[in-house]
Structures are given as structure tokens and as C-alpha cells.
Design a binder for these strands. Sequence first.
RNA 1: GCCGCUGUAGCUCAGCUGGUAGAGCACGUCAUUCGUAAUGAUGGGGUCGGGGGUUCGAGUCCCUUCAGCGGCACCA
Length: 648
Amino acid sequence: MAQITLTFPDGNARDYSAGITAAEVAADISKSLGKKAISADLDGDHFDLQWPIERDSRISINTMADDGPALELIRHDLAHIMARAVQELWPDVKVTIGPVIKDGWYYDFDRDEPFTPEDLGAIENKMKEIINLRDPVTTEVWDRDRAIAHYEQSNEPFKVELVEAIPQGDPVRMYWHGHWQDLCRGPHLQHTGQVPADAFKLMSVAGAYWRGDSRNKQLQRIYGVAFKTRAELKAHLTMLEEAAKRDHRRLGREMELFHMQEEAPGQVFWHAGGWALYTTLQDYMRRRQRAGGYVEVNTPQVVDRKLWEASGHWEKYQEHMFIVEVDEEHAREKSINALKPMNCPCHVQIYNHGLKSYRELPLRMAEFGACNRYEPSGALHGLMRVRGFTQDDAHIFCREDQIEAETRRFIEFLSAIYRDLGFEKFAVKFSDRPETRAGADDIWDKAEHALKSATEAAGYAYELNPGEGAFYGPKLEFVLTDAIGRDWQCGTLQVDFVMPERLDATYIGADGAKHRPVMLHRAVLGSFERFIGILIENFAGRFPFWLAPRQVVVATIVSEADAYAQEVVAELRARGLRAEADLRNEKINYKVREHSVGKVPVILAIGAREVSERSVSVRRLGEQGTTSAPFDEIAQSLVREATPPDLR
RNA sequence: GCCGCUGUAGCUCAGCUGGUAGAGCACGUCAUUCGUAAUGAUGGGGUCGGGGGUUCGAGUCCCUUCAGCGGCACCA
């Protein structure tokens, strides 16, 4: 029998006979490890204990104390246990795939009847029964034809398809959880009883296409979450409740920022508070862009299809455009227009007015461009995905050799803005050339190199998304992480070789000849609507003072203070603050509670004492105590605090 | 767009097997003038998302449509 050498994490090595299992190795190390072991990492890959080890490897034995492997095994076994439970309850249901995902797993089933919430409860109970059976998990390697024959016989067409996709000659691993069998890569635990029966929960059922393709049959996907302990499950459910509390749709209503209604799906009715936030953000961006060397323009909303045909959008995105037909009485034919879904073709029109010299490049043309896109109904989601929105859009017309400098300049521009808005860190993703693309390879080489080296020069690492670039050029995406760890892709910079060509943009070079400029499409926030949604959730409605929709409420304690309170409000407004008076005949407790719930950052309380001293009592959101000071002093410090970060 | 679920007062929600709508908060009025997270009393408010059908009778059952929610697909 051949000998193999296994090297442990502490650097020690031992020799074993080839074919030994990780379980045997663990038991050899110590009796207790043999008992506690749940799986093993071999050269960094995760295997189950029964796996025979055939060659020299680095090995580390995992126990339930190792969170990563333990959770993966628990969730993966639960996926199988759930599938078994479903087939025991409804034997005619077809199984497909069930991977581990963040916090849990899902499994896709083919069943004619929809799963109901009651079904989920029944499945959960059945799963607990299976766990309590402590059924052994066993595995075998089959050859492909045997597996196909098996699944054909048991009438599992999706499994047949999965096995058929495995290359001829590759081993096919089969797993059994008790009598129930599934095709699976593994690894798994040793018996079903190792899964904590009280630390998982089935969350929801949703439609999902087989293999993620909308042309395929739609299956039913059941999602579950699972942890090692009941306490962790509870903590997770509590976290979900907390996340729901900062949902921008809920806060938008509670804080009276905006609403949406049936008559205008996917479009926003901004209320006074939300619009204050919106315009504050827009004013800030306008100043930033001016300082950043952009010119600001504005272009039409309704544009004839001829331009969209020229730009190529008509062909590719017609279904997602709002079409406006104008039936003019004396027109020979109907004029067909579209609400602009993006600004770039219009910007090229401005660029094309008058000859441009190479001396004018780079030309940075910005627009707070109001766009409309007919998004599929199922895609709409609060402010995050809307049909009417305004982009902080700009196009930089430049020469190829200017791409790198412009990219670096943009990254620095964007990072300053993200920092001002409360996002310290962001990630950069770089997408290079896709299979089908326009433009010559040497230009792609140059553009890709320019984006990469500009990113590095600006001091950022990037993650590569191979082949994910647009057909017209490579792109950078900027992803920020919010206060509860969620990622949002906001900024983008895309190189475009095609649009200048299609719309015939040129400049006169130093050589006196016409040349083609390159266009850089870029945005920092993306859309104001979505970005404000992100801000709301990031801050949970507790905005920094300069952005807060209502900055100050002046609340009276006695009605004798009304006149002075109004004076205070008038003065704060005169100094540019968003201040309101609350003169209602209510106790100060009531007013403080209401405005605290409304997330007003500063409440100024005024009673008889403040009137006589011409002072105010200041209460900050989230703080218990109050401070008292002369009004003028407070007003000055509030004005300072309300100054946007770029003006400080 | 697809699958599933939901739609009752401004908000959150109750309304059993069909018999002609209810609570809390909010809002109005009155009393109270109060010192930092809900003062008390009282009053008004809903064509039960829209349309159609079954029925003596529909918030409740059926069909259809719109919108929202959770996913999937999409996201120039």
C-alpha cells in the first residue's frame, strides 16, 4: 500500500497509507478530535470525513468550532434535509439544485401546486423529524451513465440534465441522507442529527428560473436561514427587523420625504422634506462639478426617434423607452419620439455644434439629466429602481491619450464626494473586453491599460470582472458599503469608442486633420433618487445636519413663549437653516417625543426662562441631556454645522 | 415580464363558515400652560384598490385589471 504524507496546520507531518479517510486521521491525532471532527480541508478544498485521501496534502481537521466550514456543512445538509422533507410530503415534486448562500441556503423545486406559508411550516416540522432520526449521511462515486439511468428511472428530469452536463469520465458523486438520495458535490456532515434542529428557519418561497434563464421553466425556490445556535438565529432575525426599520420606503413615509402612487408607478412625488434633501444634495454636486472643471448643460426630454436610431438605442432598448407619438394635424406622417432614457446622444449634439479643436479637450460636459426608462414592472423597488430619475451624468470628450489622466482625476473627484457624504470606503471593479465588442483590439489594450493604471495611481485596488465590459468599451464601477454592510454600486466610468463614431463627433487635431474623440460616460451618485434611498438607509433617517430635511424644531413649553419662538425660527431661516416652530398646546414631553421619532437633529425648547434670557435650550437627537445658551451663540454654531462639507 | 403573496380610515391592523364595517395611533374640538420621548375628555372620518360576475344579499366566493411586497429575469 502506497504511503502518503499529510502536513498539519502546525507544520507537523505524518505518513499514512493512501486511501485513509480524514475521519481516521482525526481519530489518529486524538480521540477527542476524532469525535469532534466534522470535515477536513485538503490543500484548501473542503471535503467530508469519509473522503479517501490518495496523495500528499496539507490537511486541517474542522470541528463545529470552525465557523466557516461548520456553517457551510449545516446549511448544505439542511438543503438536502429540506429536499427530502419536501419529497416525503409530496413524492411527485421534482428536485433540482440547492446551494448554500449568505446566511442560509435555497432549494429549487418543480411542483405544479404553489407552496403556501402553511406548507413551509409543515416542511420545517418534517425537517426536524429527519434531524431527530440521526440518519447517516453516506456517499458513493458513480459513473455518469449509471447516474443518468438512475435519474431517468426515478423520473427526475432536472437531475438527468445536471448529470448530462458533467463531462464524460468525470466522477459523479451521490449522497444519501438516510434513504433519500441526491446528486451533490458535497461535503456533508456524518449524520442528520449533527444539524442544530432549533437554529434554522424557512423564510420565503419565490419563483426562480431553471438555470437562471427566463426562457426556461419557472421553479419554486424555498429560502432558509441557518446558524449554529438558536441565539444566533434569533440575532439574525432581529437584525432583519432592524434593517426593515431603516427601509427607505418606510422612513420616506414616516419622515414625509416622498410618496409614490398607482397613477405614476416608478415615479416619485417628492414632498417638501425630501425635496429639501434632494436640492441640498444637488446644490452640493453642482458646486463640486463646477470646481471639478465641468461645464453644466441641459438637454430636451422628448427627442425624435431619428436620434435614437443614430445612437443605436432604438434598436437595442426600444422596449424600455417611453414612446411618445405626436399626431400633428398637418404633418405628413406621425412623428415618433421617445423620452430620453439617457443623456449621451444629446450631449454629443451639443459637442457637435461648431468645430472643436484639440485644445478644447478634455471637454467635461455635465447634466443633471432627467431620464425616463420603462423598467419592467417586477424590477421597480421604491427609490432604488424607478422609471423617472435624474442622473448626475457627465461625458468627458477627450483624446485617447487623455483617458488615463481623466480617469485618475475622476476617481479623486468621486472619492472626495463619497467621503463628504459619509462613505469612507468604496471598492472598485474593473470590467474588461467582452466576447462581442466594437473597436479594434489595440484600442481596447490602450483603454484597459489606462483604466487600470489610473486606478492604481489613485491608490485603489480593483477587482477584475473578466468579460463584463460594455460592447463599446471597458468600465470601472464604484461600490460603496453602507452602515450595515450592504454594497451599493453607484459610481461608474465607461470608455466609449462607439458613440462618437455613430454620432460623428470630431475634433481638429494639431495636424489640422479631423480626429475622433473618445467619450467617457461617468456618474458619481448614479441617480439622485436611488442615492437618496441609499442615504436614507445608511443613516437610518438620522442624516448629518447639513442634509437633514428638517434641521431644527423650535418647541414652546408655555404659550407665552410663542412670539419669541417665532422670532427664533425667523432668524434661523434668515440664516439659511430649515427651521420650524411647534407652538401646539402640548406638553414638551409630547413635542420632544414626536420630533425625536421624526428624526429632527436639533430641538430648541423655549419656556419662560428662555424668553426672559433670550436663550434657547438645545436637545440633540439621540442625546438625553440638554444644554442652554444664548440664542445668538447657538444660531452661529448651527449655521457652521449646516455648512456643506465642501464649503467648510 | 415571470412565480407567489398582499390590497379594509392618513398609518398599523382586526373583521369566524357571505347577512349591509371596527381598534390603536394620527386628525378636529374643549379643558389643561405644563421644563425635555405620548395630559384628559370628546368628535369626525372608510363607495373595503378598480371593473365585471354568482347570490335575495359580497369586505368575505369567482373572473378580470391595476398597484405594492418577496424573489427570478432585466438594469444602456
